[in-house]
Design a protein around this nucleic acid. Sequence first.
DNA 1: GATAAAATACTGACTGGTCGGTATGTTACT
DNA 2: AGTAACATACCGACCAGTCAGTATTTTATC
Lengths: 206, 206
Amino acid sequence: MTAVVKDPPRRRRGQDTRARLMEAAIGVLARSGFDRATVDEIVREAGFSKGAFYVHFETKEDLFWAMLEERISRQQEAFRQTVAHTQPLADNMRMILSGVFGLLRDDPLWGSLYAEFAAHASRNEKVRQRLAAMYERWRELIVDLLSASRDAGRTRKDIDLQFAATLLIATVEGSIMQSHLAPETVRLEAMLEPLTRTLSEWLAPD
Amino acid sequence: MTAVVKDPPRRRRGQDTRARLMEAAIGVLARSGFDRATVDEIVREAGFSKGAFYVHFETKEDLFWAMLEERISRQQEAFRQTVAHTQPLADNMRMILSGVFGLLRDDPLWGSLYAEFAAHASRNEKVRQRLAAMYERWRELIVDLLSASRDAGRTRKDIDLQFAATLLIATVEGSIMQSHLAPETVRLEAMLEPLTRTLSEWLAPD
DNA sequence: GATAAAATACTGACTGGTCGGTATGTTACT
DNA sequence: AGTAACATACCGACCAGTCAGTATTTTATC
């Protein structure tokens, strides 16, 4: 009976502004990197003034954190949904790969942003820990997947799951890296099938 | 008869200074990144003054280039020497891997610097091209190696060599990346043997 | 349901500090 | 005494962050 309209309208404008600032920041940060990116440029692109920025973020670094956190949770959510159901390992593999590749295709800026994060992690212990935790979580998810697959007799038993998970991630990340640097030469789309086949073959029981 | 003392002494001092500046720059750039690294800090660390810097480098970016070029040629030289002789593929593989891993162990700063280069490549077309060319050269070297191994009947024939080379590089780079972000969890040294075995096994003819 | 008061969102000029690069001087070597 | 290597003081551009004020939306009161 009572009105269910929540999230009071007074908040709407502010949330919107914050979202638009972050949207603009993606582009500017990808183009210029964190240090070269100026707050002025970000707000100009978002159509606001400098003051608006400091209403929503304490410092420029604060924005950086917000983006990192958002990206991490988004990726992990996507991953979790992808591997929800138990299927032949090869199918899961293909879905995971095409999910990740698709994300980069639809949002090419994130390739640059990711490189930016990685570089920052070298210099900022907190960023490093956050990214390390993200990888750790990924490894866990993959280990779970492989473990289930192994119990079902679909994966060879003479393999260290931690090592396998690390190697799988390495393969994907490394491919992304090369494709990022030389998109003409190394095409992710073209690698999807061979990658799926190779990795599945490797993990299959003889 | 004539004195064989070459590389006139007046040059010696200068070359030394340049080398010391670059040495100091490695540390500062790894710590602060290109944009945050100040010329003042670099020269302070090297024990020189700003004037000395601008005797040897036109701009700060010039230093960046010098470091990139030096690193690329050094790596390629090391690689070429490592795979000079024809051996069982597994042995070559192990030598290459332990060569690369050893380089990073002896010179841990280069992990950070590499991340820095990669981030810059996203924003600077020239850096991107230079790094892309480096990867291209690597792929060629690996393709040659695999090709020879295949002709000798030591490597399976149903495999695309370009894909294999890309995958090998991806594996190594990706492992380095993870180890860089979480050195405690992902230990390169511990991965040497399993990595060698896995990759050799994959490439071996059934 | 009009209006005053209060809270919130935003503006944009300004400042304090930083830093790449330069100009000019000094030292060391030949 | 001439020249290359290096030192030092300085300048101008740039930029993160501040703040006093304006605009807009929400709440309170009648």
